[in-house]
Design a protein around this nucleic acid. Structure first.
Length: 495
RNA sequence: GGCGCGUUGGUGUAACUGGUUAACACGCCGCCCUCUCAAGGCGGAGAGCACGGGUUCGAGUCCCGUACGCGCUACCA
């Protein structure tokens, strides 16, 4: 056990964002790799938008991904008093001052414009920065509202050595006297994180690159507090295909990890995919890694500086998320131990009302074989109940794809007569297995003078409604004699 | 506007401290399997390393500039 302590500190937005998930993953991997502790802290200082509901989304996402934390979840709002005390301490030590400037309402929409305007003239010195302490105390006592701002040095530079981005330096003149405590007594983000990170003994801060300029302000706070500055490692961002920041508002469900859970992703597969976004192991000729292998190989040094693009096509059902993620999930589904996959498929079928108790009882062998048969060509667990529906349903309530019907059934009118004939042939077979059905079908084809392929392809569509799938005799055996015979007869009506 | 960071095929990534025809994976295309393919096998196209200079015998790798992108810039986090 090392003394390394890291934390994942999401704000409760109601769901876990893929970018946040990756940040959590990297923190987790680092903690597990180094024998450190991984702490979860919910940054709910934002008054309005924080509720049990919102927090649940984060927790669910973490749980699904299998990112277990050693401490927490802690709620930042529980420490507000501590944050206020710290601000008061900074005020007393002279590292901060009261600013009595009336609150200036900012309109979110025009904020960028305001930056540009403000930048045109040199930053005005805050008139209250040098107000003598007794006057400041008097005004406060009189009830004049104020905020507490950090007294940022007028010269010099702040710096920190980022593990990923290297030495970061900034002139203090570029940093404004940031607000620590609002006029209503609410502590602000930069103060809160620093106080909490100190309190929790965080040694390594691993977070998104969008915090890099906040870090300079935070370093100043650490210094004003006389606390030890942790090691920082900023992560490159995950961008949308058009290279803009990935956001739920603009990009919808693709950014939420619950979407991946609900779409039939295997947690390990998604973790594997996420790990390779912005990080690469030294062993570069491989991409498939188990969790243990990821932990073993993980290092902060392997993190990249450039942003990664999460590649997906909006509105395209087959490309709804990154192709590589889908491919990787397919790899997991087709190669993972069958015993691990079975319960996942079961959950999926239950969700879609396709699960039968007998699949877990006297048909458990059949269920395992069928899943094993289908897995090679599926990309998500959801495929088992969509593409695989025909295997789990007794009646004909599965979709007959138009193209398949056209191609394999309507192709030859003789099928109208052949299909019932084949059904009869199958009924007469003694043992209904791969060999006997194969022999029966070929014998029937010979009797009728047609190519086996005609019957085979027609049977595929008759049994599954599709034109693609596993080898036909495997399909026939999986579907079983009763349904095979019934479906062949029914298909004659579709010719 | 200011400050910072980044830029290798469509995407994710490789390329030792500069040294052979820039490698791998996804995707795409084609072929094979011939009972199909959204499975599998095999093969192919696709970047000359954002652009322009410079240093060097030699640069994706070092230096400078430009462009573009992204981030931050708030009594949001």
């Amino acid at each position: 056990m090392s003394d390394i302590r890291v934390r994942f500190a999401p704000s409760p937005t109601g769901y876990l964002h893929v970018g946040g998930a990756r940040t959590a993953l990297f923190n987790w991997l680092f903690a597990r790799k180094t024998g450190g502790r991984f702490i979860l802290r919910i940054e709910d200082t934002d008054l309005q938008r924080s509720s049990e509901e919102m927090v649940r989304g984060i927790l669910e996402g973490m749980e699904w991904l299998g990112l277990d934390y050693d401490e927490g979840p802690f709620y930042q709002s529980d420490y507000a008093e501590k944050h206020r005390e710290t601000a008061a301490r900074l005020l007393d030590s002279g590292a901060a001052y009261r600013d009595f400037t009336p609150k200036q309402e900012r309109d979110e929409a025009t904020i960028k414009q305001q930056f540009a305007e403000a930048a045109r003239q040199p930053r005005a010195r805050n008139p209250y920065r040098d107000l003598p302490r007794d006057q400041s105390d008097r005004m406060a006592a009189e009830g004049t509202p104020f905020v507490i701002r950090l007294r940022v040095p007028e010269e010099g530079r702040t710096s920190f050595d980022d593990v990923v981005f290297g030495l970061q330096e900034r002139s203090c003149t570029e940093i404004e006297d940031l607000v620590l405590l609002r006029s209503d007594g609410h502590p602000l983000y930069n103060l809160s994180v620093v106080v909490d990170d100190i309190e929790m003994g965080i040694t390594h801060v691993i977070r998104g690159q969008d915090h890099i300029s906040n870090t300079h302000k935070q370093v100043l706070i650490y210094e004003a507090l006389g606390a030890q500055v942790p090691t920082f490692a900023h992560l490159p961002l995950i961008l949308a295909p058009n290279k803009s920041k990935l956001s739920k508002r603009k990009h919808g469900a693709v950014v939420s990890v619950t979407t991946y859970r609900d779409s039939g992703f295997i947690p390990d597969a998604f973790v594997n995919f996420l790990a390779l976004l912005g990080w690469s192991p030294e062993e570069t000729d491989r991409e498939m890694f188990t969790r243990a292998e990821l932990i073993e190989r993980f290092s902060l040094e392997g993190i990249h500086k450039s942003n990664a693009v999460f590649n997906f096509t909006e509105g395209d059902a087959r490309h709804w998320t990154d192709q590589k993620a889908l491919w990787m999930n397919h790899e997991y589904i087709s190669k993972m131990p069958l015993a691990d996959l079975l319960p996942m498929v079961r959950t999926q079928l239950e969700r879609d009302g396709l699960w039968r108790e007998r699949y877990g009882g006297d048909q458990s062998e059949w269920f395992a074989q069928t899943v094993d048969l289908l897995r090679a060509r599926y990309r998500t667990l959801a495929d088992f109940s969509s593409y695989g529906r025909a295997y789990f349903v007794d009646d004909l309530s599965f979709e007959f794809e138009q193209a398949a019907v056209q191609k394999n059934l309507k192709k030859d009118a003789a099928l109208r007569d052949l299909l019932p004939g084949l059904a009869a042939k199958f009924e007469a077979v003694e043992v209904f297995d791969h060999e006997s059905t194969d022999a029966a079908l070929r014998e029937f084809a010979g009797e009728r003078g047609v190519k086996a392929g005609l019957l085979i392809n027609a049977a595929r569509t008759a049994l599954t409604g599709q034109s693609v799938g596993p080898g036909i005799f495997d399909v026939i055996v999986a579907v079983g004699r009763e349904r095979t015979v019934a479906r062949l007869r029914h298909a004659a009506s579709l010719v």
